[in-house]
Design a protein around this nucleic acid. Structure first.
Length: 644
RNA sequence: GGGGGUGUAGCUCAGUUGGUUAGAGCGCUGGCCUGUCACGCCAGAGGCCGCGGGUUCGAGUCCCGUCACUCCCGCCA
């Protein structure tokens, strides 16, 4: 790319790709660099910058003959005795520099070690045909070193930057600044930044305003454990870090701002998982006024679809997110976060088995009947597995099920035009054929069965579906399959405390409003509550909120909370609803999980710059740490540590 | 709080049935090498086998305990 060409691109305001492969993402997203803030480019009698005239991903054949200055890290040294190569690396790329023994700087070049920071001056030279490196954007040229300055030395590395093997987490975290120089995670972090920038752009373009909400706020009685911050001015009282800006965003709507979003930090003092940082994470927090569920869907769906099309590496993205009621999701997929890349759908085949010759299932169906479907009545579900029609596969599934603590996994597999296996034998030819036809199966396929009361086996059935789909390689991994899960129940039975509880957010609006609360069985009431699921990952949860105080009072009453509790715990929210609250609703997609899906990683630490370890310790900064007695005295705190 | 996995050189790992002086690759140190790009070749240094206890003539290896990291369950409105 010539300088004239660069100028032309800058003038049109286009981003310029300086390099394409070493830090490909970093380079292609580079923006805003203009000739004005790079005064040494393209001018005669050029000003020589203290550190660089070009970055390490920038030089091309068209630069041959130029005297340039580069600064960066020594990525790799190849010493041939009579000839020495230095791969110089920075954020933008890699440039090969070369020096020969006659040069007065050669002794210094020989002393260089990996990750030293150096400045190199030299002339850009073309590489001869057979020495061109087609794997590097700068591979047609090299810099013939004329001067060399060590800007910073590095001790022997606890963690090499060159190469991409796995390293222990504790070392990676303790030396995160080295880890972050490595190509894959460096690109992930840059991609995260670009994703967040794109989200902001899309939200602002759609008419949303980004507002900040407090970090020091009040402890919330619902949900997770709070992080507490002691108050110096109010002895014995505590702030809490927000678990989410839930109440604030509703207050923003009551305050008349109409459309809010925020890349919001959320704090929850709960244990970590691979996909869940301990302590803190980010949500794309969204709230809108004068909307119904459909309006929220219409606002959010294009943002996510666009985002995944922009950053998903060309993998197909669901064009219209299907809406699946919670109850249907549980029956078809055994989970409220189905991976729709798995084509297997389960179905209720109880009627085939009722009174049949397969006495185990027939007996179960006979024993548990006449009660509440799902909670009390027995059913038999079929999990059709195309291509699973071998005894070996069916036995493998069966022993897997036993490993899951199940008695086993019944099956029929089809071959030579008939069903095989013990169930088929007992069921008889006609019913087996009926099953095969109803489920659309043929020779070479299998079907697995789970039986009992659905509320007890649905989760296991779902895992069996996942296992069958993955083992038979029925999933197309190279796509993003989205769906909405809708119509969640408003309440659920809390088996431990033997009482009715909110099943999601207590601020959600029940479908049917006050009338439903007053007339229906609470466990039958649905909420305007929804999730977005992508490839089996729950990306976000949202709701149309309850904006009427009398409905809120009634809903809390059903969950066993007196009006006084509501007033004590959510006084501010309740007060806000009594002075003209607009109907409103929103959602809060998890940023970290979106980035994980788009980076194709299972571990959240691969998309987080400075994560804590599983014990919620920051090994680089040493958090949590001790504080001085003076600090504690200021806060009116005396430690009462556990013994041992 | 509970369960699983891992822990041997700076790093990644091997180490057989309990048996002599614990090995390899990368890195490091020194030497050789003018076209490499995971450069190559030669030599060398480097070990509390996580820690503590036990069994045994003998433990990296078996047993018990403990610590660290990690994955999962609980938890995460």
């Amino acid at each position: 790319m010539t300088k004239a060409c660069l100028h032309a691109l800058f003038a049109r305001g286009q981003p310029v790709a300086f390099s394409r492969s070493f830090w490909p993402l970093a380079a292609s997203w580079r923006r805003g660099e203009t000739p004005e803030n790079r005064p040494w480019i393209g001018q005669s009698g050029r000003v020589m910058h203290a550190y660089r005239t070009h970055n390490c991903g920038e030089l091309r054949k068209s630069d041959v003959g130029a005297e340039v200055r580069l600064s960066g890290w020594v990525h790799r040294v190849r010493d041939h005795g009579g000839l020495l190569f230095i791969d110089l690396r920075d954020h933008y790329g890699l440039t090969q520099c070369v020096i020969e023994p006659g040069n007065s700087e050669f002794p210094m070049a020989e002393a260089l070690r990996a990750e030293w920071v150096v400045r190199v001056d030299g002339r850009v030279e073309a590489r001869s045909g057979d020495t061109v490196n087609p794997n590097l954007p700068t591979g047609e040229v090299e810099v013939r070193i004329s001067a060399l300055e060590v800007l910073s030395e590095a001790e022997e590395l606890p963690l090499p930057v060159f190469g991409e093997p796995d390293y222990p987490e504790d070392i990676r975290l303790k030396y995160r600044f080295l880890d972050l120089r490595r190509e894959t995670i460096h690109n992930n972090i840059i991609k995260r930044a670009a994703i967040i920038a794109s989200i902001r752009r899309r939200m602002i373009d759609a008419g949303f305003f980004e507002f900040q909400t407090p970090i020091l706020t009040a402890s919330s009685p619902e949900g997770a454990r709070d992080f507490l911050v002691p108050s110096r001015m109010h002895p014995g009282k505590f702030y809490a870090l927000p678990q989410a800006p839930q109440q604030f965003k509703q207050l923003v709507m009551v305050s008349g701002f109409d459309r809010y979003f925020q890349i919001a930090p959320c704090f929850r003092d709960e244990d970590a998982r691979a996909d869940r940082s301990p302590g803190e994470f980010y949500q794309l927090d969204i709230e809108m006024s004068f909307v119904e569920q459909e309006d929220v869907f219409n606002a959010v769906e294009p943002v996510l679809r666009g985002l995944f099309e922009e950053f998903g590496g060309g993998k197909p993205v669901t064009q219209e997110f299907p809406r699946i009621p919670f109850g249907e999701a549980m029956r078809k997929y055994g989970t409220d976060k189905p991976d729709l890349r798995n084509p297997i759908e389960m179905s209720d085949v109880s009627e085939v088995f009722r009174g049949s010759g397969f006495k185990i299932f027939a007996g179960l169906l006979d024993k548990h009947k006449g009660g509440r479907p799902w909670f009390e009545n027995a059913e038999v579900w079929a999990i059709p597995a195309k291509g699973g029609g071998s005894r070996a596969f069916c036995d493998r599934m069966n022993s897997w099920a036993q490993g899951e603590g199940q008695p086993g996994l019944g099956y029929i597999f089809f071959r030579n035009g008939e069903g095989a296996g013990p169930i088929a034998k007992n069921l008889g030819e006609d019913l087996t054929a009926k099953l095969r036809d109803e489920l659309g199966l043929a020779d070479g396929d299998a079907v697995f069965f789970v039986a009992g009361v659905p509320k007890d086996f649905a989760d296991f059935a779902g895992r069996a579906r996942t296992k069958a789909g993955e083992d038979l390689e029925l999933l197309d991994k190279d796509r993003f399959e989205f769906c909405w899960i809708v119509d969640f129940p408003m309440f659920e039975w809390d088996e431990e405390r033997k009482k009715i509880e909110f099943s999601h957010n207590p601020f959600s609006m029940p479908q049917g409003g006050l009338e439903a609360l007053e007339t229906k069985d609470p466990l039958d009431i649905l909420a305007w509550q929804y999730d977005i699921v992508c490839n089996g990952v729950e990306l976000s949860s949202g709701a149309i909120r309850n904006h009427k105080p009398e409905i809120m009072v009634k809903a809390f009453e059903i969950a066993g909370y007196d009006r006084s509790v509501l007033e004590e715990k959510f006084g501010g929210m309740l007060r806000a609803l009594t002075y003209g609250a607009p109907p409103h609703g929103g959602i809060a997609p998890g940023i970290d999980r979106i980035v994980m899906l788009l980076c194709g990683t299972e571990n959240i630490r691969e998309v987080t710059m400075f994560p804590m370890n599983q014990q919620a310790e920051d090994l680089l900064m040493g958090a949590p740490g001790d504080v001085s007695p003076e600090q504690l005295r200021d806060l009116h705190i005396r430690l009462n540590l556990p013994k041992s």
